[in-house]
Design a protein around this nucleic acid. Structure first.
Lengths: 327, 327
DNA sequence: GTGCATTATTGGATCGTTCAAGTTGCAGGG
DNA sequence: CCCTGCAACTTGAACGATCCAATAATGCAC
């Protein structure tokens, strides 16, 4: 490999001082046009690229963002994070930032990792996914003025930090509406147990839509932890009631798959997340605009970093229903 | 946040020089026991963590590894990369390294990214996934003596760099053997078109096992691009032959799912990769030890970085058959 | 008590960049 | 003619760690 090209090499080549080269890169407007062009030419000729470590040491900015990669909880939802990560990496690169991964066993462990990453790598910011009620991580970061954006609303105090989220309720509402429009009247909801922000939001969308069409949702609501077997159980339970449902709006593709199996394909079913499983078996599912969400997260975070650090921003994106064969 | 803790702060607190603190961290054996303990105590008390940027500037080592994140080609295989990334991040963190992501449109673009990352971030090494015949990326890296490890064999000259791979042939062999042992004699292979390293390897495992049991594989071999519809087509085609197969060994879960649908569940089917789809629908599939593979990649790479840079190492891991309901 | 080898510690230089302060050259006002 | 003001550029110092060479402390034999 050729010997290292530093700012001094460029300066010597363009016959200016190091600082002038630095100014061309960071504050071009204070350099005379002719000088600026000469320096830019030298940079191009020598193939100079600024050394991030040296820059970081002086400025305290690493141009590194971090995001947690989870151990694919139950498998079926793994590809969601996958697509999100790709979107993040792509958007970050376009803005001159890079994405670093970290793992953590739980929230407490994650905070310890924050501390480590900030102290030894001088990370510029974090993107958190999957927030929940009373999230300790956001509090820790906010108290230390560490820039961060969450993908997922803070369910307690929505205005305290920047976030990007998908309008979950609108997703289930759309699914419910379609079922109603295709003739269904008894539409059940197979969700998670009450208490999770996302789950309750999705339940809301179904419930409100039912009421908007003068349909009574009473007795058509079930809750279970995520899983195929659980979905099947809920569906079977609902099918044995006096006036059984003809369609199931499910909070996840896992539960939807279970419901589909229990109903033997004779009932309409919709899932949520548009996972590969849904694509594979033809399950109608609500699709989140993940690449878009990731890009908006990066936008907000970099806005915090580069621009004015005042104020927070919130972005709510609309999901879309991918209609396949099950509804 | 408290004011910054540098090596000088620690030195002052422990009443030694900066160099002694540095020695405690980098060459503990040359420091007297009592001094070392005092310094370690100071480090713990003050919560000192070495600044990576400063260290990197002096040593030229960033403790950063990079891996490419792909845009989830066809969806169904997305979670494979997901699990691999998690394994990498975990193993790297244990060894004091961090994982950085990057995207690329194609191999040429990826090389440009290598160049950028090396010049501005001083990356220590790369992990490449999905190598193929005549890979230009490995050549580029090797020519510049950039440390790297591939997950996937180099199909041309297996000994030129370090790699980790899964014994694909052993996987399909195991699947084939199980089918034979459960009474099947006419076992077909639904693979990819000849020419891909991985695909041919998996085909080999099936073929060799058939012959080892004195079964004739002639006419039982099909090839198609990955996809559910393609899998169904191949299976239907095979089922219309004079002496149709009773079982299908498939090169991927996508093709297996298609075969399963075409056979109407009356034939035995095995897939490959143990994706969420396989888990969801009960498909028997060959599972790759991804966390293990990722850890071995990191091990090899760090061995290159920390230890003697001489010689290359190869690791071939054994997959396992996850038996479910379809075979 | 001196000399010598061994080990532990010290101060200074250095990596590549940016910040803060300083220099130069030139135009215009009194 | 001097001073001020401004623009364009240059110089020295600093960020926080490690490396290098020099010094101080220790142990041991004679």
């Amino acid at each position: 490999m050729a010997e290292k090209v530093t700012i001094a090499t460029v300066a010597a080549y363009a016959q200016v001082s190091r600082q002038t080269v630095s100014n061309v890169l960071n504050s071009p407007h204070i350099v005379r046009d002719e000088t600026r062009r000469r320096v830019e030419e030298a940079i191009a000729t020598l193939g100079y690229r600024a050394n991030q470590a040296a820059r970081q040491m002086r400025t305290g900015r690493s141009h590194l963002l971090a995001v947690r990669i989870e151990p694919t909880r139950d498998g079926i939802n793994g590809s969601v994070l996958d697509r999100f990560l790709h979107g993040m990496t792509f958007a970050a690169a376009a803005a001159g930032y890079r994405v670093m991964l970290y793992t953590a066993d739980d929230d407490r462990d994650e905070i310890k990792t924050f501390d480590n990453l900030l102290a030894s790598y001088d990370l510029d910011g974090f993107v958190l996914t999957g927030t929940d009620h009373g999230d300790v991580r956001t509090r820790w970061l906010a108290e230390r003025d560490v820039p961060f954006v969450t993908f997922g609303r803070p369910w307690d105090a929505p205005e305290r930090h920047s976030w990007v989220d998908v309008d979950n309720a609108a997703g289930t509402a759309q699914a419910t509406r379609r079922l109603i429009e295709t003739g269904h009247r008894r539409i059940a909801f197979v969700g998670w147990p009450a208490g999770s922000g996302v789950g309750d939001d999705r339940r809301d969308g179904w419930q409100r839509t039912m009421k908007a069409y003068d349909l009574d949702p009473t007795g058509l609501d079930r809750g279970a932890p995520d899983g195929i077997a659980q979905g099947a159980d809920c569906a079977r339970d609902l099918l044995t009631t006096p006036d059984p449902p003809t369609a199931f709006v499910c909070v996840s593709d896992s539960l939807a798959l279970g419901a589909l199996q229990a109903a033997g394909g004779r009932k309409a079913v919709t899932g949520f997340d548009d996972t590969p499983v849904a694509q594979a078996i033809g399950l109608t599912s609500v699709s989140q605009p993940l690449a878009d969400a990731a890009a908006r997260c990066i936008d907000l975070l970099i806005h915090h970093l580069d621009g004015a650090p005042t104020g927070t921003h919130q972005v709510l994106l609309q999901p879309s229903l991918v209609v396949r064969t099950t509804a």
